[in-house]
């Protein structure tokens, strides 16, 4: 601290250590509000670090990109001991609605967007969204039913090809 000899400029290294080409695939398989956010937040963070991001929505995760459900994901206390409330309460009428609106408020208070707007931000940041073929077929859904920026409905094999060399996070 006492040494005030000016040394040459220290410049942050903004090129990621792994070099360009780091790639992360997020497999989103859950359709509850609380399980939608981990993937969204991590994908967004990865994009902010210059990492190529692919999100694959499968099974219940389809609710995150289904126009009918994406804005209306729910959170329930049932089966979730981390709420530290008596489990019986979770089954009372109206409890899921109440828990959902409380969680939505906590998320909004942190200026974290709702699911559709979050996906919009991820796409604006360069992220890629993919829908699972089997989930679409099971639910008889087509591209028109899905969030507009979903790039395609693809098979599991396609996804494995697209994410060649990627780190994979399954949620």
């Amino acid at each position: 601290m006492t040494n005030t000899d000016a040394s040459p400029a220290i410049v942050p290294n903004f090129d990621s250590e792994a070099g360009p080409g780091r790639k992360i695939a997020f497999i989103c398989s859950k359709g509850s509000l609380d399980m939608a956010y981990p993937g969204l937040i991590l994908a967004n963070a990865a994009l902010g670090e210059g990492v190529e991001v692919h999100m694959f929505f499968t099974f219940w995760g389809f609710d995150m990109i289904n126009k009918k459900t994406m804005g209306d994901l729910k959170f329930t206390m049932l089966g979730n001991t981390a709420t530290h409330m008596p489990q019986g309460m979770g089954g009372l009428p109206g409890m899921t609605a109440m828990a959902t609106s409380k969680l939505k408020k906590s998320i909004a208070d942190l200026d974290v967007p709702e699911v559709p707007e979050f996906l919009e931000q991820i796409v604006a940041s360069g992220g890629h969204l993919w829908a699972c073929r089997m989930s679409a077929d099971m639910n008889k859904l087509t591209k028109e039913d899905l969030y507009d920026d979903v790039e395609g409905i693809i098979s599991a094999t396609d996804f494995i090809e697209i994410t060649n060399g990627a780190q994979v996070i399954f949620i």
């Binding site: 005030t4 000899d5 000016a6 040394s7 400029a9 220290i10 942050p12």
Partner: peptide, 19 residues
Amino acid sequence: MPVTTLNGHEIHVNEEGFL
């Protein structure tokens, strides 16, 4: 905390180079 000089400005930066 390192002191560095940039364009004649003497600045305090952290180990990464942020002011």
